[in-house]
């Protein structure tokens, strides 16, 4: 039982020792008296050169400034004051670079925020006319906003880290200043570094405060803008509704007019048909009358013809009779005077 406990304890301790060894390896620094010091500075600078993000660059510079301060402390401990003075100068350079990197980072963030706002405005302008089909765009917008929030959170976190780091450095510099064994030149250098550090911190805080104020103003402006947009949207909706009602009324009136027109047309058609029928009837009547007239005329003509024929026949008969009488008279020798 005891052996088992010892074995597990040993395994756990080996595991912890292994991990700590790796962590220590990573935290170790190369001191100026070491052969690879120049190489280590070159590696730092190369890492910085290959990093594009301004805040990441600021964090790297902050880390390197911390390393230089640790080196200053170490060289002072070793009594190598000449080297310490050189390191203090380098440390100041790092602080200046850090300050300018932070300023650029702020500017970059502001520029990206402005760009994002402009893009939002543009998207809204494009989206307004067809507000029904914008689900996909809204999702994209949401993810953009989330990304912006995330990057703002990262920025805040990094700034907090930088502030904390600067505080620690200030404490270390003050501790160095209080040392009595330092020559005046070294102390003057440290005092200057401390002053620069404080100035950088003040500048940073002032910029932050200004930014907070401008952010508040921007928020207010944005709120006003949103309210105005909401009002405009409401007005547009009301206008659209009124137009729709008007359109519907117009359509109804148009339908009534059309129905009336249709009815009129139908009536006219009916009238025309009646007229046509009347005309046809009249024509038929006329035709009938004409036919009757014709028949009568034909009848009359036939009658006349018959009468004429009868007359002629009578005349012929009379003529024949006269001729017969004349013949008889001739035969009798007496003229017949009838």
């Amino acid at each position: 039982m005891k052996l088992k406990t010892w074995l597990s304890l040993a395994t756990i301790s080996v595991f912890f020792v292994g991990n700590t060894a790796f962590a220590n390896e990573a935290e170790e620094t190369v001191t100026p008296d070491e052969e690879l010091y120049d190489t280590s500075i070159l590696i730092e600078e190369t890492e910085l050169a290959l990093t594009e993000d301004q805040m990441e660059r600021a964090l790297l510079l902050d880390e390197f400034a911390n390393d230089r301060l640790s080196e200053i402390e170490a060289t002072i401990e070793e009594g190598n004051l000449e080297e310490a003075e050189q390191l203090i100068e380098q440390y100041e350079e790092y602080l200046e670079r850090l300050e300018s990197e932070l300023e650029e980072s702020e500017e970059e963030q502001e520029a990206s925020e402005e760009e994002a706002n402009e893009e939002d405005d543009e998207v809204e302008r494009v989206e307004l006319p067809e507000s029904d089909d914008n689900d996909g765009n809204e999702q994209g917008e949401d993810s953009d906003e989330e990304n912006q929030e995330e990057s703002a959170e990262d920025q805040d976190k990094s700034e907090e880290e930088l502030r904390e780091s600067a505080k620690q450095r200030t404490i270390k510099l003050q501790a160095l200043l209080e040392r009595e064994d330092l020559p005046e030149e070294a102390k003057a250098g440290i005092a200057k570094a401390l002053e620069n550090q404080k100035r950088a911190e003040e500048n940073y805080l002032r910029a932050k405060a200004e930014k907070a104020v401008s952010d508040e103003d921007e928020d207010e402006q944005e709120q006003e803008k949103e309210e105005e947009e909401e009002r405009e949207l409401q007005e547009e909706r009301e206008e659209e509704a009124a137009e729709q009602v008007e359109e519907e009324n117009d359509k109804e009136a148009e339908a009534v007019v059309k129905a009336e027109q249709k009815q009129n047309k139908a009536e006219k058609k009916q009238q025309k048909a009646a007229e046509k029928a009347e005309k046809a009837e009249r024509k038929a009547q006329e035709k009938l009358e004409k036919a009757e007239e014709k028949a009568n005329k034909a009848k009359e003509k036939a009658q006349e013809k018959q009468e004429k024929a009868e007359e002629e026949a009578e005349k012929k008969q009379a003529k024949k009779a006269q001729e017969n009488r004349q013949k008889q008279e001739k035969g009798n020798g007496k003229p017949n005077h009838n």
Partner: peptide, 20 residues
């Protein structure tokens, strides 16, 4: 210098949180 020392120094030259 031994290679192990050189390896440690190179590792320490990179920014913190570097992983081997």
């Amino acid at each position: 210098q031994t290679i192990d020392t050189l390896k440690k120094d190179v590792l320490a030259s990179f920014s913190k949180k570097v992983e081997l």
